[in-house]
């Protein structure tokens, strides 16, 4: 008697949520493992991110002739959250593959491994975000109350990233070429999305295509613009929400269909 695939997927996800304490431990362990015996620990990530933002900021600020007061905070938020988004997606690809040892020995809800990737990267994000107030201080830009809107924004982004990581985790377990392809696509998206360049530099017509048709732009915008003191547009919210709904339907279908095969593929 085989349960319907939707129930399989949902019950696995529900069971994984109940194992939050394990997710928490594994996520912390991942972060600490990378930086054991180093004095600064995960703050090395913060430092390297900070250095990158500063150097890109100086060079591209000059090239684009953007005022530092606008460009540097824009770049900092963009880079920090893009780092979060892209590493959740790349590590989501190897979420199941990397957990092969556990998956093949213990029947832990598989979604735990996806949550682990999310939590680990969230912890890293928490380290990186320290840069943002420093940048604001450096350029003397105040933070407005609107910034709080970026919290629901981040939540919606996380909801979106979860389904992306889940689907990619499943597919990459089966097709091992996929992580490379995803890596290249992310690289392209990094340049297509206004992270290093500000959207108002684009000519009007090109902007319409490049921005509106880019889902990453909308996702980034619901976090970034409140932090820079602007409200995200309704389109930003609508697209992000629609993406979450559509994506989760797809993810549950894919996960329910293939969950039982994952252990075989590893």
């Amino acid at each position: 008697m085989r349960k319907s695939s939707t129930i399989t997927a949902l019950s696995d996800i529900a069971m994984a949520a109940r194992r939050y304490s394990l997710v928490g431990m594994l996520g912390w362990q991942d972060v600490r493992q990378r930086y054991r015996r180093s004095a600064l620990g995960p703050f090395w990530l913060t430092i390297s991110m900070g250095v990158m933002i500063a150097s890109i900021g100086v060079v591209f600020g000059q090239i684009f002739n953007s005022p530092m007061k606008e460009f540097l905070p824009f770049l900092a938020v963009g880079m920090i959250f893009w780092g979060f988004i892209s590493s959740v997606i790349t590590e989501g690809c190897t979420g199941f593959i990397a957990a092969e040892g556990i998956i093949k020995q213990l029947s832990i809800p598989l979604f735990v491994h996806i949550l682990r990737v999310l939590w680990r990267n969230f912890l890293i994000l928490a380290h990186n975000i320290v840069i943002f107030p420093l940048v604001l201080l450096a350029v003397g830009k105040p933070l407005s109350w609107i910034a709080f809107i970026s919290i629901p924004g981040l939540l919606l982004v996380v909801v979106n990233l979860t389904w992306i990581a889940l689907i990619l985790g499943v597919l990459c377990a089966r097709y091992r070429d996929l992580p490379q392809i995803v890596g290249s696509i992310l690289q392209i998206l990094f340049y297509l999305t206004p992270i290093m360049w500000m959207p108002d530099l684009l000519p009007k017509r090109a902007g319409l295509y490049l921005l509106d048709s880019n889902p990453v732009y909308h996702l980034l915008e619901i976090i970034r613009s409140p932090l820079l003191g602007q409200l995200p547009t309704t389109t930003n919210w609508e697209i992000s929400l629609a993406l979450a709904l559509f994506g989760w339907f797809l993810a549950i279908a894919v996960y329910g269909r293939f969950k039982r095969r994952i252990a075989y593929w590893l």
């Binding site: 394990l22 594994l26 362990q29 600490r32 493992q33 054991r36 015996r37 040892g101 020995q105 832990i108």
Partner: peptide, 20 residues
């Protein structure tokens, strides 16, 4: 399974217990 050799014994008790 799940034991991290850089972590202390106590931490590993938690990892191992969590996995179980």
């Amino acid at each position: 399974l799940g034991i991290d050799s850089e972590a202390t014994g106590r931490e590993n008790i938690y990892f191992r217990g969590g996995l179980l």
